[in-house]
């Protein structure tokens, strides 16, 4: 993706990168040859599909298509494929680098992470200013009131959600927006605890979904989260609260 920000970080300047390469032990080799042929491209994508996030997105895409939303499913599958390609190319470059030079070892960071492309944004070192937070919060309230006033599944509501959703994903593709301390690799018990919780929740939801008369018809006996939230989202105040929560979650994720 092209540079998205007008202000570049010093290390994103090609000239400074060359000098860094000269001075540093991390001498990057030339990029591996561009993939040729369908088979090689498929191998690269298959390498990326092994990433858990990509696999999860593909699963969500499958169930979205099955539940009668082919456009959403196609959108998800496209992004998942783009991510698989990106991850596969990074792994390929890392493998090429490992063959040519030794990359200095860094705890908890794979060589693919070390060779990841630079971020597009100038990183903030502090939380956003209070004035900016106030403007953002007001905009979020106006947005939630406006989109919440539209009927669910209508074109205006769709345009509002797609617009903000796509914008946030584009921002995310450019990398983090602020400096943050990445926690070290979790212990097994830590990863297991959260992993079990999310897998358990997914399985519980999936069970309720599969116990419905069919995938498009909700069931009172086996309600999914969507079915349980339908009464809330049927009213304008309910949609307003839900949209506000959705935006808050998005803002929280962008700040990670």
């Amino acid at each position: 993706m092209a540079r998205l920000g007008s202000s570049r970080r010093p290390d994103s300047d090609p000239a400074s990168q060359i000098s860094m390469v000269k001075d540093s032990a991390l001498a990057l080799p030339a990029s591996p040859p561009a993939p040729q042929g369908l088979a090689e491209r498929l191998v690269i994508i298959a390498g990326g599909v092994r990433q858990p996030i990509v696999a999860i997105l593909l699963l969500i895409s499958l169930f979205t298509v099955l539940s009668g939303k082919p456009l959403d499913g196609l959108l998800l599958a496209t992004v998942a494929m783009a991510l698989a390609w990106d991850a596969g190319m990074n792994s390929r470059q890392a493998a090429a680098a490992a063959r040519v030079v030794s990359v200095p070892a860094a705890p908890d960071r794979s060589s693919a992470e070390l060779l990841a492309p630079p971020d597009a944004w100038r990183l903030r070192s502090r939380p956003p200013r209070l004035r900016l937070v106030a403007i953002g919060s007001t905009a979020a309230v106006v947005y939630a009131l406006t989109v919440g006033s539209f009927t669910r599944y209508s074109w205006p509501a769709t345009a509002g959600v797609v617009g903000i959703g796509a914008s946030v994903v584009v921002v995310g593709w450019g990398g983090p927006t602020r400096q943050r301390q990445v926690p070290a690799k979790f212990t097994r018990i830590g990863a297991f605890t959260w992993g079990t919780l999310f897998v358990g929740a997914s399985l519980w939801e999936l069970t309720a979904l599969l116990m419905q008369p069919n995938i498009e018809t909700s069931s009172y006996a086996h309600p999914t989260i969507s079915t349980l939230t339908d009464p809330l989202l049927a009213s304008i105040p309910g949609r307003f609260i839900a949209l506000l929560g959705w935006i808050a979650l998005g803002a929280y994720l962008v700040e990670r």
Partner: peptide, 9 residues
Amino acid sequence: WAWLGLHFF
């Protein structure tokens, strides 16, 4: 996250 918004609205 974006899918959540799409799914519900």
